[in-house]
Design a protein around this nucleic acid. Structure first.
Length: 925
DNA sequence: GCGCGAATAGTTTTT
DNA sequence: CTATTCGCGC
């Protein structure tokens, strides 16, 4: 971070020449915040918007988006998370099963399990840049069929315009390798490359870094070879250990950072000792050359008599262990040493383990809130069980099917879960004060049983109707400032709408219909699909609850983290659990063979010791999170702590011992993170100003809107006009013909209807196309004025960042004009007046940012306003400094209201509520 | 009581 | 995949 500031300030390096890659979004956000704050403090105006800063994945995505036409991707591609990926393979499993000899590599078993295997192979191979062609020509039939599997997978991706996590990086790598022009452009733009946590990079990431660096090789990497935790996704510490060898003698400077400012010296001694304990009853290994020679030194000797590393154990009794932990935390609290529960973190191998969730439940029962978003509690939460139960009750045929045991393929745990949801819902509905919800559900149930045509809603829409009743309305009514645990039900309901919305998207469900489908009524077939397949798989895979990046550790809560999650963080008091764990082998034989033959470099760390290395590094990372007090904790039994910890564990004093004295400690408070949020005009400011409640639901809580197709019209016009501009910018004006516009329009329509999951009626479609053609016509083939399209602009304020995208700048010399487009199906003149005023303010901001960014004066602002009923009116606004100032001030005001989470008021104009899913909730109802 | 093989129980991490 | 337990033979 300091280096980035130093480069910008002292060396006059332009921010847009700096490339910084991190591994997590959170780290990237933190970095942006600190850099912008520091620059602001020193009164340096720099546009960090153009700076390449983010995770490897986000940076690769950015490069791809900027050059989409050079990739296999088309616009509106869909980015899949790992569940989506597996679900996609699952849905296409027949295509994989029909590959000849596939049975050698695919174990028998369910389609879902096989999909998982396929995803694992595909991801691993991709991260190492292994191509399907080379595998297919291998004489080993299992390797050859893996090659065919990979090829089939890639074919599906291309056909459906999809992308997964590992293809992001491959596509970016291909883009740079295959297009010298783009590579050179980037190489000359980027002069300084920095990578954080370099020990966690994998092969393709290393290749990307050196590819971008070119001959200049101006690369600065930071990392700790002892904290490499991501072998399972291809990361290898060889990248950092061998880094110096990639440079000529003396060209690479190594700066060892061995002084530790984080931890008490007892803690530092403890984890140094841990790394030296490589020989014990069950194990013996040596680090040899696989560890950089260093010894971490504490910055000062501990001033305490009391040990700062202790153990806290129950003996063969989980309840006793729980009690002891509770008592310890309560003691801390009553001693006044603990200011906030967030000073305490518990680290685990996994937070999904029943032992961990049991502890969390126990602490919560005893009034200590636990923040543990990755512990897969989503489906266990009351609000989710109740919502699912009520939803099922609206489909009596499905409930009947469950009760009659018709769904024999469901596991007992799923049956139990669904039945419990129904029971919970029934119990709730039987209470007299909830009869209105009961009546409504019964009414829906009857409708669905006797459905003869189709409803005008699907599952997600039904949920929104249900939110009108208690307890859902009450949950939605929660104020945003109540703290993570109290707002959790609202966030979980939002997540549920996202999940169900995605189901409707994936299976093209937009109404419930009585039409026959696979021998059943569509409504019944879809309901079974939703619960018996989709939600069941999600239930098995687990859903992470909302994670708050804006706070280091949420105030008022003890944090439960995986060790992986905790990396890069520090806490005053750290409990390390998971001492039952043992080193485990992670590789499989087939991948080993492929590694030998097809990976671009031979194996690095010896195969027999990697499991020890990984194990030691994992716990080194865990232990070194502690600042003031490190506590090893477990419920001791035969195998806990495991033999690997025995030696270091036995030496520790217990918290009960007299040597340990809590009064000597002074605990630091957790550092404030204060990440700057980024707001954009259209998706934040305008939404908030239109209706703060809509902002709360759609933006803050991220409820999934039930889409109306009104917005499709605008997007369609917009995107096709962008295609026209792109052609002009490539100096291919001759390709801007009616025929091509038709083609661009058609292809945009296809991809948009896929992603937006809605369509435009014929006449509306015609009208949209006509709008584009009319715009083209008006230019009379003269595109010379077009200079630059899609300029990203950002404004860095002390506590937030505004971001926007200008459609088009045109003009010569110092003076430019900016142009924006708005398209709407049926412009309503009364509504428009208010809207146009907003657009004008938006244009003012853009103009201001363009001036700041390009150093060119903006003379005019044009808005093309297009609609179904004809004409392409251009509205031209004057650009004045004083108007900008006024706008900036009101803008600032709005953002601050958003940051204060002031979402209580509602729109003034009842008309804006027409398309809102939360109409019932609104005071304008 | 010891050595040995077989059976059995518990069982992740992430962009 | 590892560690523990069980059964069996000696």
């Amino acid at each position: 971070m300091q280096r980035a500031i130093y480069l910008i300030e002292e060396c006059n390096v332009r921010p847009e020449s700096i490339f910084i890659a991190t591994f997590t979004e959170k780290a990237a956000k933190e970095l942006v915040t600190r850099i912008t704050n520091e620059l602001a403090n020193r009164n340096i105006t720099a546009n960090i918007n153009e700076m390449y800063i983010g995770t490897f994945h986000s940076l690769c995505l950015r490069m791809l988006k900027e050059h989409l036409e050079y990739t296999r991707l088309r616009r509106n591609y869909r980015l899949m998370d790992s569940f989506d990926q597996q679900y996609m393979v699952f849905q296409n499993i027949h295509r994989f099963r029909s590959i000849p000899e596939i049975e050698i590599v695919l174990p028998n078993g369910g389609a879902w399990k096989q999909a998982e295997t396929i995803c694992n192979f595909v991801n691993n191979l991709s991260e190492e840049l292994v191509s399907p062609e080379e595998l297919m020509s291998d004489h080993d039939p299992s390797i050859a069929s893996l090659g065919r599997m990979l090829q089939e997978y890639r074919t599906i991706l291309t056909e459906a315009n999809l992308m997964d996590f590992s293809s992001i990086q491959i596509e970016a790598y291909r883009l740079l390798c295959d297009n010298e022009g783009i590579l050179n452009e980037l190489r000359s733009a980027i002069t300084h490359i920095m990578v954080d946590e370099y020990q966690d990079t994998n092969y393709i990431q290393e290749q990307l870094v050196f590819l971008l660096a070119g001959e200049r090789k101006n690369i600065c990497v930071v990392g700790d070879d002892d904290q490499g935790l991501y072998r399972f996704r291809g990361a290898t510490i060889r990248n950092i250990l061998e880094f110096p060898q990639k440079f000529a003698n003396g060209e690479c400077r190594i700066i060892p950072l061995v002084i530790n400012y984080r931890s008490n010296s007892d803690i530092v001694d403890f984890y140094n000792r841990w790394m030296d304990t490589t020989d014990g009853a069950k194990f013996k290994f040596r680090w040899e050359n696989f560890r950089y020679e260093k010894r971490i030194e504490p910055h000062e000797k501990s001033a305490l008599h009391s040990p700062a590393v202790v153990k806290l154990a129950g003996v063969n009794d989980e309840d006793e262990w729980h009690e002891k932990i509770l008592q310890f935390i309560n003691n801390l609290k009553t001693s006044g040493k603990l200011m906030d529960y967030n000073q305490i973190a518990f680290l685990f191998n996994s937070v999904k383990h029943p032992r961990v969730t049991a502890l969390a439940r126990f602490l919560e029962e005893n009034h200590i809130n636990v923040y543990s978003p990755r512990s897969d509690m989503f489906f266990q939460r009351d609000e989710i069980r109740l919502a699912l139960g009520c939803l099922m009750l609206m489909f009596p045929f499905y409930v009947q099917g469950l009760e009659n045991g018709e769904y024999t393929f469901l596991q007992p745990e799923h049956l139990t879960y669904y039945r419990n949801c129904i029971m919970l819902a029934n119990e709730y509905l039987m209470q007299p004060e909830h009869t209105d919800l009961l009546k409504w559900i019964r009414r829906r149930g009857k409708d669905h049983v006797s459905l003869t045509d189709a409803t005008d809603y699907a599952y997600c829409g039904l949920m929104y109707q249900m939110f009108e009743f208690q307890p859902f309305a009450g949950i939605l009514d929660t104020d945003m400032d109540v703290g993570v645990v109290d707002i959790r039900p609202a966030r979980n309901l939002a997540k549920l709408t996202q999940i169900i919305g995605k189901f409707e998207y994936l299976h093209r469900v937009d109404v419930l219909s009585a039409d026959k489908y696979r021998g059943k009524r569509g409504i019944d077939a879809n309901t079974e699909l939703l619960f018996n397949l989709y939600l069941r798989l999600l239930y098995d895979g687990g859903i992470t609850e909302y994670e708050d990046d804006s706070e280091y550790a949420p105030s008022g809560c003890v944090s439960f983290l995986t060790i992986h999650q905790s990396k890069g963080m520090e806490f005053p008091i750290v409990f390390v659990d998971s001492l039952t764990n043992v080193p485990r082998k992670t590789t499989n034989d087939l991948m080993m063979t492929i590694e030998d033959r097809y990976f671009k470099r031979p194996a690095f760390e010896p195969y027999e010791v990697t499991k020890f290395f990984d194990f030691w590094r994992l716990y080194y990372t865990a232990f070194s999170r502690a600042q003031d007090l490190l506590i090893l904790t477990c419920n001791e039994d035969k195998r806990t702590p495991s033999a690997y910890f025995k030696e270091v564990y036995d030496e520790l004093q217990s918290v009960d011992s007299e040597a340990f004295d809590i009064r000597e400690f002074n605990f630091k408070s957790v550092k404030a993170v204060n990440v700057k949020s980024t707001y954009s005009f259209t998706s934040h400011i305008t939404v908030y100003e239109t209706c703060a409640l809509q902002y709360k639901f759609y933006r803050e809580l991220e409820f999934m809107p039930v889409r109306a197709n009104a917005m499709l019209f605008g997007t369609l016009v917009h995107e096709t006009i962008e295609d026209v501009h792109r052609a002009a910018l490539r100096h291919e004006e001759q390709t801007i013909t009616e025929e091509n516009v038709n083609r661009w329009f058609a292809s945009n329509y296809v991809s948009l209807t896929k992603t937006e999951h809605t369509y435009l009626a014929g006449p509306q479609r015609e009208a949209a196309l006509k709008q584009v053609l009319r715009y083209v016509e008006r230019q009379h083939g003269d595109w010379s004025a077009i200079q630059q399209a899609e300029v990203d602009v950002s404004l860095v304020k002390p506590d937030y960042i505004i971001e926007g995208k200008v459609d088009l700048i045109r003009g010569e010399g110092d003076t430019v004009e900016i142009v924006d487009f708005k398209a709407e199906r049926k412009p309503d003149m009364e509504k428009m007046r208010d809207r146009l005023e907003r657009y004008r303010r938006q244009l003012h901001i853009y103009a201001h940012l363009v001036e700041e960014r390009t150093g060119r004066k903006v003379s005019k602002m044009h808005l093309y306003y297009t609609g179904e009923d004809g004409g392409v009116p251009t509205i031209t606004y004057p650009y004045t400094k004083s108007a900008v100032e006024g706008t900036l001030a009101s803008f600032d005001d709005t953002v601050h209201k958003i940051m204060k989470k002031d979402f209580r008021h509602c729109a003034d104009d009842p008309k804006v509520c027409a398309g809102c899913d939360f109409r019932f909730y609104c005071r304008n109802k």
